[in-house]
């Protein structure tokens, strides 16, 4: 039982230049934790010092923002696709 995590270009160097990583299914939070456990360098890019997902990191399940689902508790099923999409932002 596996799900696919799509890796954005800026994180690929931290996961062996892969555009996708396959991990065992579970809730979104568990799946991302498996990614971090396999590729520890990704941790600081995804999570802040308090262990929360960074504000500029958007996570989608099959194209739906997890904020509109159950957040990191969103349960995944075999074959689901999780996409990590860094937000584009700036300021004056």
């Amino acid at each position: 039982m596996a799900v696919t995590i799509r890796i954005p270009a800026l994180l690929r160097a931290l996961v062996g230049d892969k555009s996708e990583v396959s991990v065992e299914s579970g809730a979104v939070g568990e799946v991302l934790a498996r990614l971090v456990s396999e590729y520890p360098d990704v941790k600081d890019r995804l999570y802040d010092e308090d262990g929360n997902l960074r504000r500029f990191v958007n996570v989608y399940v099959n194209g739906e923002d997890i904020r509109a689902l159950d957040g990191e508790a969103t349960q995944l099923k075999d074959g689901d696709e999780v996409a990590i999409v860094p937000a584009i932002a700036g300021g004056i």
Binding site: N58, G63, D65, V85, A87, I88, A89, G90, G91, I92
Partner: peptide, 15 residues
């Protein structure tokens, strides 16, 4: 003072 792209709009554009 800032911009934050609408996540859904950003994703639609990438798609």
């Amino acid at each position: 003072e800032r911009f934050v792209m609408d996540p859904a709009g950003q994703r639609e554009a990438f798609t």
